[in-house]
Design a protein around this nucleic acid. Structure first.
Lengths: 166, 166
DNA sequence: CGTGGATATCTCGACGTCAAGACAGGTAAG
DNA sequence: CTTACCTGTCTTGACGTCGAGATATCCACG
């Protein structure tokens, strides 16, 4: 079977036969697959009346464990957005009743953002559906293939996750 | 070696031991790797005074082959943006002297966007550097591993690239 | 203590994208 | 022909994000 990346590489090869475009076989596929994944996830979240950015913030809180509370600073580092963006997101999540802001008793500059019961219910349901959907997307791969794939991807990821050279 | 995804999955397992989060091993890595890749690419393009969106449009024209000319409609389908976005992008690329608009002689509604010589020079240089940088990122993998990885990724991608269910 | 720099959060203006719609030109059926 | 629909591009208004800066607080060192 051929995919779009095979066609893309073929086009490059015709135009730039002097270049060895072998890296594209792996890395263009990673990018394109990520884009398709984003769409698939959006569809799952939409079924829960949720958008991707909401899911990102809510899952960061959910993963933190009881009492599901983090500072805006930790949230923005977890989700890789700027502080202005995070303020805006928390504002909207608070209006929607999914999180609640409270002053940090330890640090008067600080704020703590906590998942409400409604927020926890919503994110748990969306996450369960997401994992189910992702399992479907992996359907074409055997368990062994999945382990191989995960392991190879990890070795590409490790340099990024260890080096501070982000 | 552990990466961030191992830690993320560990956190989910502690919080939701009832869920089988195995799909995350593959798919969260795909997403995170794509994000890191985006940053790495941005850095390469910046060295050529170029932004990612410019590269996307210019490479679509470059891959089309001589005379490096496509309609805005084909460009927006190739880059997955809306028509309004593409109008804006072509405007800016034209101001920068990298592309030129001309009326389509075959279809009076249409326009053709052609790479200028300056545009072609710029995109060729950036693309060569990009491929070099990507080769470095794959340095930790043997040639056999790369082929395995590409092949597994392709089988995940094929359903998206064949089904019209985008 | 007090002072200078670091940290945490929020505010503000600019910008790129999207969605919807406008408009001109193409196209096929009667 | 001509009518009705489709296609290709551009326009417009709304919105989310970013980057820079403002403000308040914390903290380490002298």
């Amino acid at each position: 079977m051929e995919d779009e990346v095979d066609r893309l590489i073929e086009a490059w090869h015709a135009e730039r036969p002097d270049l060895d475009v072998e890296p594209l076989h792996v890395l263009s596929r990673v990018s394109r697959l990520a884009r398709h994944l984003d769409r698939a996830r959006r569809a799952v979240f939409a079924a829960h009346g949720m958008e991707s950015w909401e899911f990102d913030v809510l899952t960061a809180l959910r993963r933190a464990g009881s009492p599901y509370e983090l500072s805006p600073g930790r949230l923005l580092r977890a989700t890789l957005v700027t502080s202005g963006t995070m303020t805006n997101r928390i504002d909207r999540l608070e209006s929607a009743g999914l999180v609640r802001r409270s002053p940090d008793p330890q640090d008067k500059r600080g704020v703590l953002v906590r998942l409400t019961d409604a927020g926890r219910t919503r994110v748990d349901a969306a996450f369960a559906d997401l994992v189910d959907r992702e399992r479907e997307l992996l359907g074409s791969l055997s368990p062994g293939d999945r382990r191989t794939l995960a392991s190879l991807l990890r070795s590409l990821l490790v340099p990024f996750d260890t080096d501070p050279a982000a």
